[in-house]
Design a protein around this nucleic acid. Structure first.
Length: 721
DNA sequence: CGGGGAGTAT
DNA sequence: ATACTCC
């Protein structure tokens, strides 16, 4: 949410002086001197907009349930009211207030839980997309703020309007807008009109209100947007830059100066913006290093050269939960599983291939409770990532939980006590090009044709914009773009019936996907890589006598007697995955599918995943072979075979192929973990052979996306990955 | 002091 | 790869 607060006071200025002090402002200096009949061309001649939605989460909730409009409403996350509507604010509530305090101030406060960000995220992207449909240079800042560089738009509109006729829309900082001659600031004046139009569009199309700031850079636009609070806009003129900077009550109010930076500045005796302006740069450099020092100093003067950079699809997707305390491995595992379930589903909708997985934890500590995070990350084996994409989400989750637990054990020694207060799971390194999923699958790529807005042949329901995107500010009929995603998942798991619930979800889930995938190659590449992985797997097996699926490193850590046992002929020969499979690996084209049905085993890495995490198996993250062929024999047979090898425990708690003795030697927490996985495995196993050829996502667009200039296409605005 | 997500430094 | 910082 927005963490900003504004308080304005009055003060005198020393802008000129300060500006001269500051170096690294070559451009600013240039514009400040000499014949500046056209200062626009020199320095801060940009026109930047900053949009900030009013109490965003609360607005979304009021849209979802209009009955909440007229009551004091707070959005709660854990013990905090993260934001509240204006009815509640009239009663003295503010954001980030504890629930107790809030209830105390406003007993009638209605609270809705806002821990699930789905709806906010969707609405947030709708706003960004709407703005982008007007002009592409849009940068998101959190869920409720967007910057826009409309310099060119302004230039064009100015060329076709009578600059003597312009006036300012909304407020003008420190001025009565009626008093200022817009003709002296024609570009900002035009900017204020565009801002007003966009706010209006956001309101009419999405039902959201918000503030806007119009200025010459991001810093200033953001600062000024908050000066008139709900649902208003403000323009900052160059001559008032020092005013707005000087009236900031503390350095903390400067965007870019967070808690830590403020503290360090504090330690240098700096409290106010003005003191920072006057502070010798050299001293600042000593504390912060050159670039940072210069930046801070510039910020104090309202100077900010940072460009507005188009925000594309998110670079990572994460899901987290905080809680009072989690102290046992089993709870950790369950929490991770819960988080992954939703994360994987989101990832699947996104359509890109996650290549890195990260687990972050926060340990309980009396001091500094809310900082101190630790994380571990690792590559995601391709076959797991593909499951996410193809929709075998349950399978993917199982395997990812295993991966996550490995990372967890890298941070936490579970044999000693621990207390976690937060767990976060994250996918990053998202690859656009769909990996050719399963071999022959590509044929299914037939018609993913979509409702891509950028499609040359406008599909009926598509976004039809006025291609003259700058015209009058009536944007495209963005809203209805409803691309119903062609959901032809063959897999029966999750997906199926679920169509896109909201156009927003379809929109952005869909959109990111678009920018991905390269078409034609999908096919061949797919099969090729698949073949390759299979044979790699075969080659890799058997190093010494150690089965390929046993991680040598881990193996070494085992008690000697167990090692011995593992290597005994009886063991080796009893596992199809070790003996049988090795010989037919290459000739078992459907091995991977069989493997999905294979019950988990301590000794085999079944395709569906599970493997024994920290103990025996080769760590998936380091393994180069993708899967252990499970054998050409039907799963049923495999099962039978194993049953005979070991007595099935009476309680049927764990798979029959697991030696109870070996199992009992494992650390207690590992046992727990295994049990949990097996339990979960059973569920997974219920869906035999769900694996279908992954469809390949659209494509062709891709290349074109980079180059073509379809006026209506938003795709091209996304960063190329 | 929530739940995300981005960027930078090392 | 991990920590830190910011919003």
């Amino acid at each position: 949410m927005d963490n900003s607060e504004e308080e304005m006071e009055e003060d005198e200025n020393e802008w000129r002086k300060g500006l001269v002090d500051s170096e690294a402002i070559s451009s600013s200096v240039a514009s400040g001197s000499g014949l500046n009949k056209a200062p626009e061309l020199l320095s801060e001649n940009r026109v930047i907009l900053h949009f900030d939605l009013d109490c965003f989460y609360a607005q979304v909730e009021m849209i979802r349930n209009p009955a909440l409009r007229d009551v004091p409403l707070g959005v709660q996350q854990k013990y905090i009211v993260v934001t509240c509507n204006y009815v509640a604010r009239e009663q003295g509530l503010t954001k980030l207030m504890s629930v107790t305090d809030a209830k105390e101030k406003c007993p009638q406060l209605v609270l809705v839980n806002g821990e699930n960000l789905t709806h906010y995220r969707e609405m947030s992207y709708k706003v960004t997309e709407l703005l982008m449909s007007y002009s592409p240079l849009v940068e998101r800042l959190g869920f409720d703020e967007n910057f826009m560089d409309i310099t060119e738009v302004v230039e064009k509109r100015l060329a076709q309007t009578d600059s003597n006729n312009v006036s300012f829309k909304g407020h003008v900082f420190n001025n009565l807008s009626a008093d200022v001659k817009a003709s002296e600031h024609p570009r900002l004046a035009v900017g204020s009109h565009i801002a007003a139009e966009l706010r209006d569009i956001i309101h009419s199309k999405l039902g959201l209100t918000g503030c806007a700031g119009i200025a010459s850079n991001k810093l200033l636009a953001k600062l000024v947007s908050g000066t008139f609070k709900p649902n208003q806009q403000t323009t900052l003129l160059p001559q008032n830059v020092s005013d707005i900077m000087d009236c900031l009550s503390s350095l903390r109010k400067v965007p870019g100066v967070g808690h830590q930076t403020a503290k360090r500045l504090h330690s240098l005796g700096l409290e106010s913006v003005k003191s920072l302006q006057l502070f010798p740069l050299n001293n600042l450099v000593r504390e912060f290093g050159g670039p940072m020092a210069q930046r801070l100093k510039n910020l104090a003067f309202g100077i900010d050269d940072s460009p507005v950079t188009t925000t594309g699809a998110p670079q990572s997707l994460s899901d987290e939960d905080s809680f009072k305390k989690i102290s046992c491995t089993k709870d950790v595992l369950e929490k991770i599983q819960q988080l992954l379930n939703s994360l994987v589903e989101r990832m699947h909708k996104d359509g890109r291939l996650p290549q890195t997985f990260r687990l972050t934890i926060r340990r309980f500590s009396a001091t500094n409770k809310w900082f101190n995070r630790e994380s571990r990350q690792c590559p995601i084996p391709k076959h797991i990532g593909q499951k996410v994409i193809s929709g075998s989400c349950d399978d993917a989750v199982v395997q990812l939980v295993s991966l996550a637990m490995k990372l967890f054990h890298k941070m936490v020694d579970s044999s000693t006590t621990f207390h976690l207060t937060l767990i976060n799971v994250c996918f990053s390194n998202l690859q656009n090009k769909g990996p050719a999923s399963s071999g022959k699958g590509s044929i299914t790529s037939f018609f993913t044709q979509s409702t891509l807005p950028r499609n040359p042949q406008p599909l009926s329901s598509q976004i039809q914009g006025d291609s003259s995107q700058y015209g009058g500010g009536h944007c495209m009929d963005h809203q209805c773009s409803t691309n119903s995603r062609t959901s032809q998942h063959s897999s029966q798991k999750t997906v199926t019936t679920k169509s896109c619930r909201s156009s927003g979800e379809a929109l952005h889930g869909f959109r990111w996907r678009q920018s991905s995938v390269v078409a034609e190659e999908d096919n061949e590449k797919g099969s090729l890589s698949r073949e390759k992985s299979v044979s790699d797997g075969a080659n890799k097996t058997v190093t010494h006598k150690l089965p390929s699926n046993v991680d040598p490193e881990v193996f070494k850590l085992l008690p000697e007697d167990i090692q011995k046992e593992l290597l005994s002929p009886a063991y080796i020969s009893s596992f199809p995955s070790m003996s049988t499979n090795l010989s037919n690996a290459a000739s078992a084209p459907y091995a991977s599918q069989i493997a999905e049905n294979e019950p988990p085993s301590i000794f085999t890495v079944s395709q569906s995943g599970k493997n024994i995490k920290e103990i025996l198996n080769r760590s998936e993250s380091t393994s180069t072979h993708h899967q252990q062929p499970a054998g050409a024999c039907p799963a049923e047979n495999v099962k039978e075979e194993r049953k005979e090898m070991f007595p099935q425990p009476a309680d049927c708690k764990f798979p029959g192929n697991v030696d109870p003795t070996v199992f009992s030697e494992l650390p207690p927490d590992v046992q727990t973990e295994l049990m949990c996985e097996w339990k979960q495995q059973k569920i997974v196993v219920k869906h035999p052979f769900t694996k279908k050829p992954g469809r390949s996502f659209l494509t062709k667009e891709q290349k074109a996306a980079g180059k073509s200039n379809q006026a209506n296409s938003l795709l091209k605005y996304f960063k190329p990955s």
